[in-house]
Simulated assay, not measured.
Amino acid sequence: MNVQILVDTACDLTEEQYKTYGIERLPLTVHLAKKEYRDGIDITPKKIYDAMRSGESPTTSQVSLQTFQTIFTTYAKEKHALLYLSFSSELSGTYQTAKMMEQQVLEEYPEAELHVLDTKCASIGYGLVAIRAAKLANEGKSMEEIIETVQYHTKHMEHIFTVDDLKYLYRGGRVSKTAAFVGSLLKIKPVLHVDEGKLIPIEKVRGSKRVLKRMLEIMEERGTDFENQIIGISHGDDIERAKQLAEMIKEKFPVQDVLIEMVGAVIGAHSGPGTIALFFLNNDYK
């Protein structure tokens, strides 16, 4: 029996991708206008972005302990190997909750093949890791082989991104109020990356056209083995700029393919509309 790959919806994969690769998902929760929605099930990212443009401030919450208990126990009872790949522990408490329940379930079912792994990734960077794990699982690879490859990909997955309006990062405590105000006035676009799961500013670029060019330069500086990997792009309801970046990449690098998806409701609630994110490996594809 193959290893089942489990993710949460911060990986920003589509319904079709979950089905194609046999990936099971747990929805995170979005709170909007005093209502709760299951990310990717009850609400679309588009609704979140439209609400944010109208001045609303959605919030999010992690997968519950009870949800983990139910699914972990089910797989343990059925003696079916389960690998849960979590959203970065630096951006959500979901990983810690899952680890807590993993320990409890293994105490009751010590023979269960149950593992929880922190990807330290987000959005399509996380999604690409999940797809790689699912492909290996579908090939019948062992839990140990899958974990080893997943850890390699999470270690080498670059996240380079920019946001359209600094106020959303300010609201989430990522930049100061002064920086957000001045940045908006001067049309300054921050370029950030993810280091060990944390959001880290790299530099500031003036103008949206220049920021895409700079993201491409960073990809050239950090990336390698492009012909053997799928490049990921996610966007906050800005498909035109996402396509523009994809074309720039295809013109410059011999990439295998470029996967474009919308930033999901949960991550989008913190990054805001207009976000553009780029994902690639900084080492050889494995």
Results as ranks from 00 to 15, higher is better:
Gly272Thr: 08
Leu114Trp: 10
Gly183Ser: 09
Ser271His: 08
Glu111Tyr: 11
Thr73Lys: 13
His270Glu: 02
Ile200His: 02
Ile147Tyr: 04
Phe161Ser: 01
Lys120Thr: 09
Ala242Lys: 09
Ser64His: 08
Leu185Asp: 00
Lys187Thr: 00
Glu24Ala: 12
Phe279Thr: 11
Asp50Thr: 13
Leu281Phe: 10
Lys155Phe: 05
Glu247Met: 11
Glu24Ile: 11
Val175Ile: 14
Val258Leu: 09
Phe68Glu: 01
Gln17Ala: 07
Val116Gln: 00
Glu78Ala: 15
Leu13Glu: 06
Glu227Phe: 09
Thr70Tyr: 13
Pro190Gly: 04
Gly140Phe: 11
Gly274Thr: 11
Gly183Ile: 08
Pro201Asp: 02
Asp164Gly: 14
Asn2Gly: 01
Thr44Pro: 00
Gly223Ala: 07
Lys177Cys: 06
Ser176Arg: 04
Thr20Trp: 02
Tyr126His: 15
Leu166Gln: 09
Val266Leu: 10
Glu220Lys: 15
His235Ser: 09
Pro110Thr: 14
Phe280Val: 07
Leu245Trp: 10
Arg38Cys: 01
Phe226Asn: 04
Ser176Gln: 07
Lys79Thr: 07
Thr178His: 00
Asp42Lys: 03
Met143Gly: 01
Leu169Ser: 10
Lys189Asn: 03
Met101Trp: 04
Lys250His: 11
Ile200Trp: 03
Val116Glu: 00
Phe253Ile: 06
Thr9His: 09
Met100Ile: 15
Thr162Lys: 01
Tyr84Thr: 03
Ala134Arg: 05
Arg53Asp: 07
Ser64Thr: 15
Glu107Arg: 15
Ile233Glu: 03
Phe72Lys: 08
Gln256Asp: 10
Glu144Leu: 11
Asp50Met: 07
Leu32Val: 05
Ser208Glu: 13
Thr97Pro: 01
Lys99Ala: 02
His193Pro: 05
Glu16Trp: 03
Glu261Asp: 06
Lys250Ala: 14
Lys77Leu: 12
Glu15Met: 07
Gln66Pro: 00
Pro58His: 13
Ile233Gln: 04
Phe226Val: 10
Phe72Thr: 05
